[in-house]
């Protein structure tokens, strides 16, 4: 075990010890016929490979510290997140990638740079060591919220098919017809965030604060960071979800406001 500046570095034996626990879990899975051995092995290997690569990439990025590299990396992250959102909402209409990308990019960038620029006051503004991890947290969390909001919106619209037909027939605009579904979906998307804010510090120690404490930071300073990040993540989730849903719900309506129900879709599954 080596210790530098209050940080206990993890070395090869410790990494292997962690894997040993996974072997143990694998044995249990085998004995109980859970059929998870393969998935466990793959997941374990992926954890090792992906996180080490991430470490190497970040080390390289931090070393170069170029604003273009940081912005490019952020765009790549947003793209990957938008792709994930599209996959998680299979019932949504086509053209979801664009609006997901825009929502993620807009809220992600604004919130990330609000944290690094105004709260943490990073100098220079693109300092990768701050920008990338904070963007990762903001994008990761808002991605989950946006995916949930979109999935719920289109599932609820389909469930209310008859109601939508009647409402549009009475002269409703797409917004008047879809409104209840949008509200239901946004509420569903924001509740996990609100819950985790309410439980923070009592039920669990949030991830970033844990990391900072393990890295030797003063717990109070770590708490300050965590508060800022949590509120910002909540804001990003809320704004991103609202934006994404507002940009997409009308895609289920024709140009003159008719709800395109399942029976009318060419791509209906």
């Amino acid at each position: 075990m080596t210790e530098t500046a209050g940080v206990v570095a993890i070395t090869l034996p410790q990494l292997l010890l962690a894997a040993g626990f996974m072997v143990f879990v694998g044995v249990i899975s085998l004995r109980l016929a859970l059929g998870l051995e393969r998935d466990l092995a793959i997941a374990t290997v992926r954890t090792y490979v992906q996180l080490f690569i991430l470490g190497l990439v970040l080390r390289w990025v931090f070393g170069i510290d170029s604003p273009w590299l940081v912005l490019g990396l952020l765009l790549l992250m947003v793209g990957a997140a938008a792709q994930t959102i599209v996959k998680r909402a299979p019932d949504a209409p086509k053209g979801l990638f664009g609006s997901s990308f825009v929502s993620m990019a807009l809220t992600g960038f604004i919130v990330t740079f609000a944290v690094t620029g105004l709260v943490v006051q990073v100098d220079p503004w693109y300092r990768a060591q701050y920008v990338i991890p904070i963007a990762g947290m903001v994008l990761g969390n808002s991605m989950t919220g946006i995916a949930l909001a979109l999935e719920r919106t289109f599932a609820d619209l389909d469930a209310r098919e008859g109601e939508l037909l009647a409402l549009v027939a009475l002269g409703a605009t797409p917004w008047e017809a879809a409104g209840p579904s949008v509200r239901t979906a946004l509420r569903a998307a924001l509740i996990p965030t609100i819950n985790s804010m309410a439980a923070a510090g009592i039920v669990f120690i949030p991830g970033m604060m844990t990391g900072q404490i393990l890295a030797g930071a003063d717990p109070l300073a770590a708490a300050g960071y965590q508060i800022v990040v949590m509120l910002m993540v909540a804001a990003a989730t809320a704004l991103g979800s609202v934006l994404a849903v507002m940009l997409t719900y009308h895609k289920r309506f024709s140009a003159d406001g008719v709800f395109i129900e399942k029976g009318l879709r060419e791509d209906a599954r």
């Binding site: 008859g162 109601e163 037909l165 009647a166 549009v168 027939a169 009475l170 002269g171 409703a172 605009t173 003159d256 406001g257």
Partner: peptide, 19 residues
């Protein structure tokens, strides 16, 4: 206009809808 049209030419769908 579609919305004014629908308010004057009113369709009652086969399946009754109750809100």
């Amino acid at each position: 206009g579609a919305r004014v049209w629908r308010s004057r030419v009113a369709l009652l769908p086969q399946k009754p809808v109750i809100f």
